[in-house]
Design a protein around this nucleic acid. Sequence first.
RNA 1: GCGGGCGUGGCGGAACGGUAGACGCGAGGGUCUCAAACACCCUUUCCGCAAGGAGUGUCGGUUCGAGUCCGACCGCCCGCACCA
Length: 869
Amino acid sequence: MPNDAASAPVTGRYDPQAVEAKWRALWDERRVFEAKLDPSKPKYYVLEMFPYPSGRIHIGHVRNYAMGDLVARYRRARGCNVLHPMGWDAFGLPAENAAVERGVHPAKWTYENIAAMRGQLKTMGLSLDWSREFATCDVEYYAQQQRLFTDMMAAGLVYQKSAMVNWDPVDGTVLANEQVIDGKGWRSGAPVERRELKQWFCRITAMADELLSAIDGLEGWPEKVRTMQRNWIGRSTGMTIRFDLAPNELTAESGFDVFTTRHDTLFGASFCALSIDHPLVKGLEGKVAGLAEFAAECRSVGTSEAAIEQAEKRGFDTGLRVRHPFEPERLLPVHAANFVLMEYGAGAIFGCPAHDQRDLDFARKYGLPVLPVVCPEGAAPETFEIGAEAYTGPGRIVNSAFLDGLSVSEAKAEVAKRLAALGKGEERVNYRLRDWGFSRQRYWGCPIPVIHCEACGPVPVPAADLPVRLPEDVTFDAPGNPLDRHPTWKHAPCPACGAPARRETDTMDTFADSSWYFARFTAPDCPEPTDAAAVGYWMNVDQYIGGVEHAILHLLYSRFWARAMKITGWLPESASEPFNALFTQGMVCHETYRADGKWLSPEEIAPAPGGGYVSKATGSAVEVGPSIKMSKSKKNVVDPEDIIARYGADTARWFMLSDSPPERDVEWTTAGAEAAARFLQRLWRMADNAAPGLPPAGSPAPAEIGPEATALRRDTHRAIAGVTQDVEAFGFNRAVARIYELANAAGKGAGEGPGAGFALREALEALARLSAPMVPHLAEEMWARLGHETILAETSWPEAEPELLKAEEIVLPVQVNGKRRGEIRVAPGTGASEIEAAALADDAVARYLDGATPRKVIVVPGRIVNVVL
RNA sequence: GCGGGCGUGGCGGAACGGUAGACGCGAGGGUCUCAAACACCCUUUCCGCAAGGAGUGUCGGUUCGAGUCCGACCGCCCGCACCA
């Protein structure tokens, strides 16, 4: 580029608003991003987790979609047939809350929000196929979901049962276990109550083993998410053991089962403990004085993390005694205990205090025997004692009759064998995972397509009668479920016998909606849930991108649902794991500001003369807090709409991809946004200034290219190779850095020698093409300014020329004893002995060598020389 | 408690076991301007005028060579959690 100021024309500034709108209109008009099934091309399905239509996009969406769009545009340029759809996760409670608070119908509220957010998203210039857009509250969508439900019901994958459920008293609905965080509702934050209700469940536990083992094959998923899913499923192998009750007056039961993973320690048992919710305990409540009070007291202690940590292990001796399975004459006390969970295992345990810390705490408190039965290697069995800490390590079995001398695992096998022979126990695999309770007593969800008949029981609504539409005339002026209150809606004849019957008024958990939308995108207008050809071609999702907060719930449910759809014939076997690769992006954070005891938004502060900030309203000094996740309560939010209006979409996108690795949190700063905007201006100005002096677009390489031009060409091709590699590896911040480097190199120009214009054009074109997936509008504008009539979104990705990736001369650092002392310059391909000689001849090295002969010289070709003295 | 991850300049962060700090922010200096804005150029890990030295949480190990690998510890973050 000509450096002298005189030849640089005075030009206007790049105007993002006008330019961005222009290119978006052109992409739309030419339907560049509409995906067509085309078996002759390799397909690539990029999906970002679809948004909830809250009404406004937030900066986290911008980051998520900037990444997804980068991947989509890159793959398109690489010749893939890209599917990149967008939709709305549109059912859910906020719409009903809006109805209650503002008297607006949930549908109206939702669709207006969708319209607003669609408008905002469109200004981002994403390469989305909007022709496939749908919302999960569209009857066309939930009708198909009802079809899936009835098929799953027929396949035994959903069922109804009466169960203790997590009841959110604020939202007035049931929550799945997964939606209870620290004993509180995930949405309302209210302490969850326990209630017994008849509920619909998905039989996800039937697939627990498969869902667990298949995690090994999810190589494109973050290890963190895989681990979280493994832990959530929580497989443990152990056995159930039957304990017989000694004769008593209290119960007619003959005994109970416990679950254990430490049956090797059975001889160390000194008590049994039952959950306060165990049927046996409940049966005793009226008969054993004080038991009911004890149970009530335990229930009143919250299930929050803090409460659990502080709650001491408490028990209540029921007076019952059980016989030890191997030593019937030995009687163990049976306690009701607050630390035994009814939901896990058998709701009952045997306590071996010597080898379980909880049992030990309990035994010490209630004066129960502590008998060591596992002796660590090297300790003497006669003197080995348990103090304040249980021993949970390996060792030899002692004090255990026929088990003495065995290892822990040998003892387990022996106990299992003998108990099985006695009919008192069997090996069992236990999971932490429970069946997915997905009934919700809400209006704004997918109606469960079932009719309850006195005679026939729950009958699925036949496919021909679907959909079961949500009634529109509902009221939100009373608590509870509007569907249940509706005067007529729930009355329907039984599909089986025709008798008057009652519609199910529960709706599905909204996680059902998001469990298969990715499959629906492949054929959104299909009159059945899926189209075999479309799912066959487009599935799986090649790259899924979203927040790590969905690492368990959404992703586990989707994995289950995909298998259910395979079983019911709506997905091929190959789509059982629907997401080939998953990327979880970090959050967007911002500093917090506080003055006069109130949180202030970034717009409410101004820089203070002496540094720091003051409140615009009051002039008070602002206390700057750490950068944390943007939240309305802390007011540390920036509105993407404002950012885009001010700087343009490309700036917001570029900044979201810069600096921080995509999986890590990124801090939004005004300085960073301005720097991004400045750089984009600079890119455009470089193209604009240089364009008139360049050889025409498409000119062949000149016969002679001088050294300066060649140097720039090397930079260009190194950038092409580097950006390609970084984009493939999700190193978007590194890719951005390489584009800066190339811009810096191009800014220095290619001199005036032969081939300078060619090299500069090549560099500028590379800048446009490499940055196109990140800042598509600006890139198109540069491309056009450089004289191209084609559309960059339809242009292929640049290829690096291998010849130009090879350095002309290599600078090799020379170390002496591992410390860098000098450097030598050699031609590529110089032999090791020649390099060694050059290194030893180097002045600095010679100084350290001081005439001595080195013990060893290590030459790593192309890398380094190390002289060892 | 269990599981996973991470500790690098003033800041965000780069670095196939091979020149630590790419790139950006911030800061300092300069050019242009009547002045400013914009833009451009230079400097910027620390100590030192310099030569030089030190340096990737701490301690040790492996290696010709360690931010990177191994062990122990310290600190921070995330997930799960009375799971038998």
